[in-house]
Design a protein around this nucleic acid. Sequence first.
DNA 1: TAGTGGTCTAGACCACGGG
DNA 2: CCGTGGTCTAGACCACTAT
Lengths: 237, 237
Amino acid sequence: MEPIYLRIFKDIEAKILAGDWRPGHRIPREHDFADDYGCSRMTVSKAMTALVERGLVVRKRKTGSFVASPQIDRTVMDIQDIGTEATLAGYEHRYEILTRKIETLGSVEAAQLDSTSGAEVLRIQCLHIVDGKPTAVERRIILLDTVPLARNESFATAPPAKWLLSQVPWSRAKHVIRAVSADAATARILEIDRGEPCLNLIRQTWQNDRMVTYVEITHPGDRFQFAGIFHPAEKTA
Amino acid sequence: MEPIYLRIFKDIEAKILAGDWRPGHRIPREHDFADDYGCSRMTVSKAMTALVERGLVVRKRKTGSFVASPQIDRTVMDIQDIGTEATLAGYEHRYEILTRKIETLGSVEAAQLDSTSGAEVLRIQCLHIVDGKPTAVERRIILLDTVPLARNESFATAPPAKWLLSQVPWSRAKHVIRAVSADAATARILEIDRGEPCLNLIRQTWQNDRMVTYVEITHPGDRFQFAGIFHPAEKTA
DNA sequence: TAGTGGTCTAGACCACGGG
DNA sequence: CCGTGGTCTAGACCACTAT
């Protein structure tokens, strides 16, 4: 028999991940859940606490509990939205959309992504400029089947990473970090010499087994690093 | 007023991190804590659950609760002990200690490490060979003040990372990942060309504000990558 | 002031697993 | 078997904060 608190946890999690309850949505009070599930408030509390720990929910006394704003990638180091990082570090950040087109996924690429061939995708190339220097080139694929709103999004007001975070809660992500030599195209965009070492981050994101996006971000090795401080499974905040 | 469960949590955590309770040590029963702190067993349970989530404690019915074996670095991607990674991937792994000497920390380096000048350290250089190919050079400093047993350790049976994990529970770690060009010395050791892109990981580890170790690991860009799959704040295991 | 979450109790029953 | 943790109750009081 599954514990009640786990059932409550999973039910709420599912509603959030499915998008039924959007960020900012007010979640019923503990007392209501206790009535609905026929359990004590403490049992509900245990489920809610776990949801807060997972970052899906924020709670305020008197006001209630709400679906959290889409999360940053707190489990990994702050490999996240470049603009936010740069702003936090006190740098000026801007970006340019270099290319933007809608395509269907070829069979080879679909296999690489463990996705379905023929799926419609939005393919974007984007340059990030921090403190006046080209700092990252972002090559991204967004599955239009999963994120239909992306079809008409220009990304004029928010870069793709940030925009996606505001649209789609994620449930799973896969990361790869490598060091590579800059190829000709990348070198030209980043204004570095061909063959220079670059830090290459690949991230693939799913929402409940449906792929959301695949992105490859390439940084000049001398202009970027990933850093983070970690405790063994951060808790209390 | 600090909640009781937090006090219990911190007290136990402190004992473990200080080394008073070594890995495998049996922790008193919930009932005993409830008596000691004059609280109910549920309050103790909340503290213990949090300790399990942090990976400091493992619990078994009937047998009791025990200090967990030193953790791998689960918060970051499995940037961990190279041998373990290689073995998991099905490769043969061996290592060679290239240099090993005891020194005192110069003032410049001490400042870099945010440590005390004049502290005695063990400096090690170590080459990791996976599947017959040089895959990483590890340059490490171990604070002998924090880990006195390292003074006479030859690292013949376990590489430094693994040995350290078995000796010292860690409470905080800082990571930096960069892409760099191979310098002459590194290129020679890794049998690559000078200037080739390399993935560079720096990790500094503390135990309760006392620095344990500083390590810089350099991988050839074409022979290594960091990878991981993450859920938002892994919980249930 | 009143509504919400945060913590806590003093019990209880059950599930698991070693002897 | 029986000791241990896992879950749960039906209340309670307190802390915070929007109004």
